[in-house]
Amino acid sequence: MERFVQGEEGAFSELFARHAGKLQGALRRMVGPAADDVLQTTFLSIVRARGRYQRGAPFRPWLYAVAVNAARDHLRRHRREEPHPTDALPESAAEPTPLPDPGLSRTVEAALAQLPESQREAIVLHRFEGFSFREIAELLGVTETAVKVRAHRGYERLRVLLASEKEAP
């Protein structure tokens, strides 16, 4: 990270290769098809404002904090535009066999798209990105309790949405 702040291209390429793909997936769950635009905004943000990076701080939470800010800004500006294409829950498999890749479950992603922004952020960062609640609190600038409440409400709502999907004929 220090080398990237100094402007070393190799160091940036290394960080990009390590984080861009995963961050793209997280952003897809937060903002849907605008993920690529927000990903671009995120990486250009960290390149332009790398002078604000605090020496010694872990890079990944910082990157995700920037991404969440960019996603919020995007959603604020496009609040009234077209609905999320995954808003409608797709037909899902009913058998309770383990999924080959649960992270890619379209059923979960479609249900996720119906959650309020703050609950969706907490769940994407917790369930898909593996951050602890303490890390998410740090990253979002709120208390750990607030994150747990958001996540709990979000998971509760997700469960209701997924259960109703299972019961649907």
Binding site: G25, G103, F128, G130, L158
Partner: peptide
Amino acid sequence: TCPVCRLLLPVEGGETPT
């Protein structure tokens, strides 16, 4: 064993970068 709860399980190891 639960068809709903299994969908909420945290994703182990995350996805492969694309």
